[in-house]
Design a protein around this nucleic acid. Structure first.
Lengths: 243, 243
DNA sequence: ATATATTGTGAATGTGCGTTCACATGGCGG
DNA sequence: CCGCCATGTGAACGCACATTCACAATATAT
């Protein structure tokens, strides 16, 4: 069985690439070339086949503008709606450039035929590299990395650099999640109380301090402090590095 | 007020673009073309000039690989380290593509000379569109650049030219923020006391002086003074001349 | 229900940092 | 040159704030 829903596991490390191109010669050539460069490549000769191929995680799509069963531009919107894969247009005529420009398709490349393979490879790597960086920065998936740690918001787990989970209590986790979500903005104790406390009102402000202390004790990773106090304000996440 | 450190305000809406190109003919051509397309364009003929230009918010850099005073690739790393601007390489020889490919420079485009202006415009818009989307996704934190520094008002952080945060105390930060907010207008000690002090009144005026002294000691970046004293009045932000 | 884990409280302990003072420095006018 | 005033700066004090702890009051599990 070639394709599987659990493909992520089996192709771990390799990036998945879909070549949408109706001309079989060109398609085979592209598939072969990128396979040789250690990509996990799938060919598609039509919009329909492309939709099929998109049903598993896809990192990048080479998209011919002229397709037998539809318009490449429409397909591009679909791809972006569904899969958050990168897109590189492959177009025959230079005039299509205007349409690509006009569309609200963000940050993707296009190349004109005849195809320069080395050029295309470079652009592909470029897009993928960007995407991998975006993924680290993105927060639309439920785990966020900060410092040496990864916090998985759905599983409510904190993972250390060794990948092992650290046991956090409910309040500890909520506090940390709030700080991570604030992305470096300091949060006041008043606010943090609301986040953390199940009991409604008038909880001692110093409770936050105690929680922070407990958290800090658990978060002693590679020396770099995780939670910073902002005197007179509250607490914030100490972001060690930034772009 | 010729030029201001808070340039973001004045060029609001338009995107700022730096053309790094040693050939004056090409440079002028590019600057003109993109100015016509309503970009805020600045030309730079060398790495040094580029660094100058990067001292204000920059959205995109056209970067010639061959420069009189240095390597375009090294410059690219600097740009990414400092400014989070997008980069489009403009290279004469196709062989440079390999180097671009090899470098860990993420998600940017490159074009080879001779330059196709419409093509370059399309790629520029593409990169900028991507960036604007990224920015929306990112938390909008309110940071202002002045001199070699960036002050992040929401995170309450001061970042040096190397991107590393400088530890400021609460009062130091509030004082600096006030000065930056005043945008070069001098502020009286009386006013600054109010800004800085939590205790109400009767605080020695000279406290401000002490604070300023400590701030200055921490703000010794590239020699240029940051806080200027206005004798008999108070203090102001010293805005270095630019471009 | 009892036992265990988790969270809240208040007090004791530390310490960062704002304040102040004393003195050094520098500018300016006479 | 001097005297005067404004500002720079280092050191020391002391308070406000943060940290930590031990224990009490909950919540949660068995």
């Amino acid at each position: 069985m070639a394709d599987s829903a659990v493909q992520d596991v089996r192709t771990a490390g390799r990036e998945r690439l879909v070549v949408v191109e109706d001309d079989p010669v060109t398609r085979t050539m592209l598939v072969g070339y990128f396979s040789d460069h250690n990509f996990d490549v799938v060919g598609a000769g039509s919009c329909a086949e492309c939709r099929q191929a998109l049903r598993v995680r896809t990192d990048l799509v080479f998209l011919d503008v002229q397709l037998p069963d539809g318009d490449g531009f429409e397909l591009a919107k679909e791809i972006q709606a569904i899969s958050n894969a990168g897109i590189i247009f492959v177009t025959r005529r230079d005039t299509d450039v205007d349409r690509i420009l006009g569309l609200e398709i963000a940050g993707d490349h296009y190349v004109t035929k005849p195809i320069n393979l080395r050029d295309l490879l470079a652009r592909a790597r470029s897009v993928l590299r960007r995407r991998s960086i975006d993924r680290k920065a993105a927060r639309n998936h439920n785990s966020i990395a900060f410092g040496d740690w990864i916090i998985d918001l759905t599983r409510r787990e904190l993972l250390g650099s060794d990948g092992k989970p650290v046991a956090l209590t409910r309040a500890e986790f909520d506090l940390l999640a709030a700080l991570v979500g604030a992305d470096g903005r300091p949060l006041s104790r008043d606010y943090l109380i609301e986040v953390v406390s199940n009991r409604q009102a008038d909880v001692d402000i110093r409770t936050v301090d105690a929680l922070v202390a407990r958290l800090r004790r658990k978060l002693v990773g590679s020396g770099t402090p995780v939670i910073a106090t902002v005197t007179g304000v509250g607490y914030k996440l100490a972001l060690s590095e930034r772009l």
